[in-house]
Computed example of a mutant assay.
Amino acid sequence: MTAPRLQIEHACAHFDGREVVCGVDLTVRAGEILCLLGPSGCGKSTTLRMIAGIDRPSRGRILADGEVLSDGDIHLPPEARGVGLIFQDFALFPHLSVAQNIAFGLRGSGVDVKKRVDELLERVDLGGYGDKPPHMLSGGEQQRVALARALAPRPRIMLMDEPFSGLDNRLRDGIRDETLALLKEEGTAVVLVTHEPEEAMRMADQIALMRDGGVVQTGAPYNIYTSPCDKDAAAFFSDINVITGEVHGALIDTAFGQFLAPGVPDGGEVEIVFRPQHVKIDFDRKGKGPNPTPQDGVPARGVVERARFMGHESLVEFRMDFDGSMLKATVPNVFLPKPGTALWLTIRRDRCFVFPNRN
């Protein structure tokens, strides 16, 4: 089996005596897109800079195709790594033409360089734009020039730091999809930094969720969304509801019946986490609870506090009779019950996560 295109082993980084990244382990194969996802300050960009060779890891190793790029003894400079970089501001040279920007850093005969530039201009749909200065291009066109320039030397790894955040929303999806399709076609391993969960879900083959300088969970988008490692991981991808309860005999009592908490000792607290879209509202039976299914569990009554239409769904907030807590539910299309309306609710038990309360 061939070595991964990019492998990071226990990488750490210290600045001014402070550890900002610690114990990062990641693997990216040729043609695969890995998203580093997390809040600002969690270590995403520092990890990218270590891969690029801009920052040197204080511990650990970074390898490309089995070749050591950084370890305790070796630290190849950025230009020797076969790594391309695309940043949010594109960083095009304003005094050079589009073609000169793409050719910057290419070596070889003038004929070979021109052939590579013309090939890339066609591939990013900018044929005939070579003589134009960057300032005459739209934001989407400048992004394509930055992509072509990064692809010109045929890098084995492409690093992208919030590359689409500066684009207009109308352009972003199309430019993003075209860019990543081209990188996959080239067989380039891509590491992309973002703090937008929806963007990561749309783009990534694998997501590495980062927090406080480390990777807390890695997996395919579906798996990381449906099997979060903790409450904070679930909350990063969407709104959540949280029910806190105390364990007695491996069970927790809630408004929706009892939940199992295996392995948690008596007296320990757990958090039951579920998303608003997994709350089911009984629209027809307002005077008594609905007939529950094993999947939905026990019904509980809540009183509407507020309802808002969000464009493609409605968000309804309830105050629960059981303990006065607040609970959110989302409903497709328009559903705006008046405040004070009492409705019965159930939750999808197969979509609930039970975590020990670490607070």
Rank of each mutant, 00 (worst) to 15 (best):
K280T: 12
I102M: 10
A152Q: 08
P265Q: 07
I8Y: 01
E19I: 08
G140Y: 01
R18C: 08
V20D: 01
M310V: 02
V303H: 07
E199Q: 14
R154I: 00
D230I: 01
E313F: 11
V191L: 06
H14Y: 04
R59H: 13
E305L: 06
G245V: 06
S314I: 04
F309I: 00
F355L: 06
F104G: 01
V113G: 00
G219W: 05
Y225E: 03
V98E: 06
V303C: 03
R154G: 01
Q142R: 11
F353A: 13
C22P: 07
I272H: 14
E198G: 04
A30E: 15
D55I: 11
S238E: 08
M210D: 05
K115A: 15
R56W: 05
K44R: 09
D112A: 15
D55R: 13
V216M: 03
Y222N: 14
T2K: 00
I62T: 12
E196K: 15
F15R: 09
W344Y: 06
I102H: 06
L167E: 04
F90L: 06
Q206I: 10
M326P: 04
A200V: 00
L159V: 03
E186T: 10
R49E: 14
F309Q: 08
R348F: 06
R301W: 02
K44A: 09
G214M: 01
V279M: 04
T188K: 07
S314Q: 07
I102K: 06
F274V: 02
I102F: 09
D131V: 11
F318M: 00
G72Q: 07
V190A: 12
G53K: 04
L183K: 04
G72M: 07
Y222W: 12
V216N: 05
V264Y: 12
I240N: 13
R349N: 13
Q206T: 11
G31D: 09
R172L: 09
I252K: 12
L192A: 03
T330I: 12
H135I: 06
P265S: 12
Q277P: 11
G302I: 08
D25M: 07
T293M: 00
K288V: 12
R18N: 13
S325H: 11
Q206G: 03
M136S: 13
M160C: 03
C35Q: 01
Q143L: 03
R301E: 04
V273T: 09
P294S: 00
S109R: 14
K231P: 12
R61M: 10
W344D: 05
R308E: 15
R5H: 02
R275Q: 05
L69P: 14
L183Y: 15
